[in-house]
Design a protein around this nucleic acid. Structure first.
Lengths: 123, 123
DNA sequence: GCAAGTAGTTACCTTTTGGTAAGTATTGAA
DNA sequence: TTCAATACTTACCAAAAGGTAACTACTTGC
């Protein structure tokens, strides 16, 4: 995907190479709110992602040192994912982004449909 | 790319669908620092992006209402791109991300090579 | 003895994405 | 008269990404 994007150059390009891409920031956001999530929990929180892609994203984040993988050899096995100290440094940025997202969602809701809300309110 | 990612669901997924993807946040970051950039300038600032992809990204950002396109029918034509008010709301987030990026780059530099710096300092 | 449950991996195939080259419009300069 | 310049668009092809299904390991419960 990202052509060279994460290899060198300016720090901004480098960090974007690590956290960009489909689902990646969303995974970070979920982990940054929950402290620790199991593979199956992440999978359930992101219904549209396949196991293959989720594994791939987690491995890459682990490789970048942003996510910690804690494998417990129970039967069946249990794996906990959490942010590393470095990964946790993204919390502020992700929270800021979420605030913008909430603001936009509210604005769009006011301007557009509110399709269900109106119907409910009218009854 | 991003499967459904931008269609509905939680606001975070929605905003990520709009700004994620190769080069997109980097374009926003460049525009958020410069007020206005021409197509050719953006192209020069991101050497690895092709005209096709740059056009595609700008059209999508325009469609999301984050970027404004100002076409001047001069000969040859001139097109200025800038952030809309909504796009400018991302400035704080992007700046926060850049600060993290700079911090990490410095940390990695200290731990790793500093290959040129050492040689220069030794002479 | 067989299915279930977790967290994957692997192979195979399809879809999406991106690269490259060529074409478009218009006017001034060589 | 032909080239150069800007900002694209289009067609065609190659590469990458993603989906799906099958398979792994091991123990408990039926």
């Amino acid at each position: 995907m990202a052509p060279k994007h994460g290899t060198n150059q300016c720090p901004m390009e480098s960090i974007l190479g690590q956290i960009m891409g489909p689902w990646t920031p969303y995974i970070l956001w979920l982990l940054s709110n929950e402290k620790s999530l199991r593979f199956g929990q992440l999978s359930a929180l992101i219904p549209d992602i396949s196991a293959k892609v989720l594994t791939d994203r987690l491995r890459k984040l682990e490789g970048s040192g942003l996510v910690h993988r804690d494998y417990q050899p129970t039967v069946p096995p249990t794996v906990y994912y959490s942010l590393t100290a470095r990964g946790a440094e993204l919390h502020g940025v992700l929270q800021g982004l979420n605030e913008v997202a909430l603001r936009w969602a509210k604005e769009d809701e006011e301007k557009q449909g509110i399709p269900d809300a109106e119907i409910i309110a009218a009854e």
